[in-house]
Design a protein around this nucleic acid. Structure first.
Lengths: 229, 229
DNA sequence: TTTACTTCGTGTAACAAGCACACGAAGTAT
DNA sequence: ATACTTCGTGTGCTTGTTACACGAAGTAAA
């Protein structure tokens, strides 16, 4: 059942840059393409937008279909429209980026992705289409956003230690942060709740566990509060 | 000459939020729709994306066609995709925002816009489609960006006084700023060049004119410099 | 049970940045 | 000459940022 229009129309896709934190390294989830074009090449998970769904829905759907990842922080990034970014025909792609807690998300191959795998953000394979550019944009956005919005928690398990949080910031921003100053600042925002639990990791003193409280953040935001690291 | 595709495709448009500064008030350029839907209603300038142009090109083209505004700061904002945002059919719109120096840009009506006019950003008429939402997003972005990137100059003539610049920040951010502190900070960035000219405005001491130097900004940015007001 | 090992958790002093604040200078108009 | 208006400048106080070191708490092995 073909559909016809008076003027030619570009095809619309979504692509997702999925960030995860693993052993202190920032990783990106890629799928190996099972079909042409770029068969065998690694690519961002994504696919065509259906005419009866929003872009947010399309991004979430494709992400789950191709990698099994769902219920994660997912936000629109930028729309890419270079004329020849797809060799088949005119395709415009709305890019999204996601932050996931790696421990929760065992990856899974499905549908037209023959394989899904995590790669270090700094050592990527050759990518299909203009996906390097999309990735670079996503990284820039992640680094920018991390500094002035408390979204880093999305990359950690619900309960985490301050040392884990600090390592997250150091890894993503590529800086070295002083332990005492970091803790003073972060706790000063009053967004974290100390739990009655500790986390043992190796033969040494266990660390206090904390939890992020989004409600507190919303309340503070309304009062013109600024998170800034 | 109809075009047909295996699956239905959404139509793609661009919409531009054009900001200008006039007599100390932030204004937005709107056009009055000459055709249905929403005939007679005010709307953002914009239109359908052609299949052989990028989104940036489409935004610049539509902006010039409908309002005569060209060669201005124009940046992609966000892509809007609510299912029923257009009553005719599925239309996805990529929004852009532009900053223009009002003095330079006499508006002009053209093609399918029966009229173009500046409105105060705080007192808008009823708008077509989901354009209120787009506008709100643009305002938020403008305010956010102004604080940490030197883009405000785009709203002023090439040569401006520090008082004008200060009023710009006060107007857009809705704050009151101390004169001496503002000047100290802004000049401290070393992004402005004092000219050998002054600006007379009324029967009193004339003010020193300055010019923004984008090259200096680029150089500083590479050294990890942060603009922040 | 003592010792070795490792991370956890904490305070202070020097320094830099932000903020509040007032007045003489330089023009024009009468 | 005087009145009027905006221009352009400096200082002290308060606040936030940075640099920095050591005892506490736990495990493992001798």
């Amino acid at each position: 059942m073909p559909h016809h229009y008076t003027y030619p129309r570009a095809a619309l896709t979504v692509d997702c840059v999925v960030f995860g934190l693993d052993a202190g390294a920032l990783k990106v989830l890629l799928i190996q393409r099972g079909i042409d074009p770029f068969k065998g090449r690694w690519a961002l998970p994504g696919g065509f937008v259906r005419v009866d769904e929003t872009l947010d829905e399309a991004a979430a759907r494709e992400l789950e279909e191709e990698t099994g990842v769902k219920d994660v922080f997912l936000e629109q990034l930028y729309t890419f429209s270079a004329i020849d970014r797809d060799p088949r025909e005119r395709v415009i792609s709305v890019a999204y980026y996601a932050l996931v807690n790696l421990a929760d998300h065992e990856t899974r191959a499905a549908t037209d992705a023959s394989d899904a795998q995590w790669f270090p953000a700094e050592k990527l394979p050759r990518l299909a289409f203009d996906h390097v550019e999309i990735l670079a944009t996503a990284l820039k956005r992640l680094r920018g956003k991390l500094r002035y919005e408390p979204i880093g928690f999305e990359l950690l398990p619900p309960k985490f230690t301050l040392t884990q949080l600090q390592h997250l910031y150091e890894t993503v921003l590529g800086t070295k942060i002083d332990k005492r100053n970091f803790r003073k600042k972060v706790l000063g925002f009053d967004l974290l709740e100390a739990l009655n639990e500790t986390h043992r990791e190796g033969p040494h003193r266990p660390a206090q566990l904390y939890r992020f409280n989004p409600a507190k953040y919303e309340r503070l935001k309304k009062k013109g509060f600024l998170f800034e690291l």
